[in-house]
């Protein structure tokens, strides 16, 4: 390999200077991640959307529940987005401020996505690592269960659950949590199978570390790279599930809202020319999904360099 002149010079000075600072695998990954422009852009968007969800309500002149009586009745002319009236994103068909509603929806959608992914990370990783580590019959039974659950059209079952036990955000979390860990368990198991024959696991086993501790201390930390990548890609799909259910009117209930519910409301009002009701929530939905996909891809390239 031929070094460019600059690199060669850098190397010289580096060796003359103090000790070369060692770089951990994580530091390497970080450098690779920040070199990926799409991923960094995605992260910036995510941070902005997060700030919007966290602090937006403090700059909104209207609250999300307040009805602007001056607007009600002729929303299509009075409820337009304008700085003057304080409705930056316009109002919805009931005269509520869409800016505040979008903040509220963003909070709930992001929360559903993050909690779904968190459940998947915890349950899926431990489940998959356990199945993979013990192997044999335990593995067989545990993974058969996952196969059976994966073959069920979960969306219908989730809707069934929501109908029977009442439509609430909590039930939505439970339902989404129930299905989100399945793929994660499969991925974690596959990785565990390749890790468990490494020397350090054998060494731990030889000095008498109990299986539970081996899984927790030696296997799971080594799964983290893959798990993080997959979790990042899981968040947008959780958001899509939730929005799907809310779009049908079966998810988050009034006065709470989410992107799916807002898009659904906007889509219903479309023929009256009040397009902002559709486009603002849609914009946030689309850019956030984009950002998550880019960050996920960037993390995959950063943490798994052999895949490039």
């Amino acid at each position: 390999m031929i070094l460019s002149r600059k690199t060669a010079k850098d190397l010289e000075t580096a060796q003359i200077g103090a000790e070369i600072e060692g770089r951990s695998l994580w530091a390497d990954a970080r450098i690779r991640f920040f070199r990926n422009r799409a991923a960094v852009g995605g992260m910036v968007i995510l941070i902005l959307v997060g700030l919007f969800a966290a602090f937006g309500q403090y700059i909104a002149p209207w609250s999300n529940e307040e009805v602007d009586w001056a607007v009600l009745g002729n929303v299509d002319t009075m409820g337009r987005p304008s700085i003057a009236s304080g409705h930056y994103f316009g109002t919805d068909e009931l005269g509520r401020d869409l800016f505040a509603r979008t903040i509220q929806g963003t909070q709930i959608s992001l929360m559903v996505g993050l909690i779904g992914a968190l459940i998947a990370v915890f349950v899926g990783t431990i489940y998959g690592a356990t199945a993979g580590y013990y192997g044999g019959r335990v593995d067989n039974v545990m993974m058969r269960i996952v196969d059976v659950l994966l073959a069920i059209p979960y969306m219908f079952v989730l809707i069934l659950l929501l109908v029977v036990f009442g439509r609430s955000v909590l039930m939505l979390f439970v339902g989404i949590g129930l299905i989100s860990w399945l793929d994660m368990a499969r991925i974690a198991r596959g990785q565990t199978l390749s890790i468990k024959n490494k020397e350090f696991v054998e060494a731990a086993h030889a000095i008498g570390v109990r299986p539970g501790t081996i899984i927790r201390r030696h296997i799971v930390p080594n799964l983290l790279g893959v798990v993080i990548v997959y979790a990042t890609l899981l968040v947008p799909s959780m958001i899509i599930y939730e929005s799907f259910i809310s779009f049908l009117g079966l998810g988050v209930q009034e006065p709470a809202t989410s992107w799916g519910a807002l898009i659904s409301e906007g889509a219903k009002q479309m023929q009256y020319g009040t397009l902002w009701m559709l486009l603002f929530p849609l914009f946030f939905f689309v850019i956030t999904l984009f950002a998550f996909f880019f960050v996920g891809d960037g993390l995959r390239d950063a943490l798994d360099p052999k895949d490039r």
Partner: peptide
């Protein structure tokens, strides 16, 4: 197309 699930595509198409 990946960030345009069916419930997003449907209103856009009608629009």
């Amino acid at each position: 197309a990946q960030v345009l699930p069916n419930f997003v595509m449907a209103p856009i198409l009608v629009l």
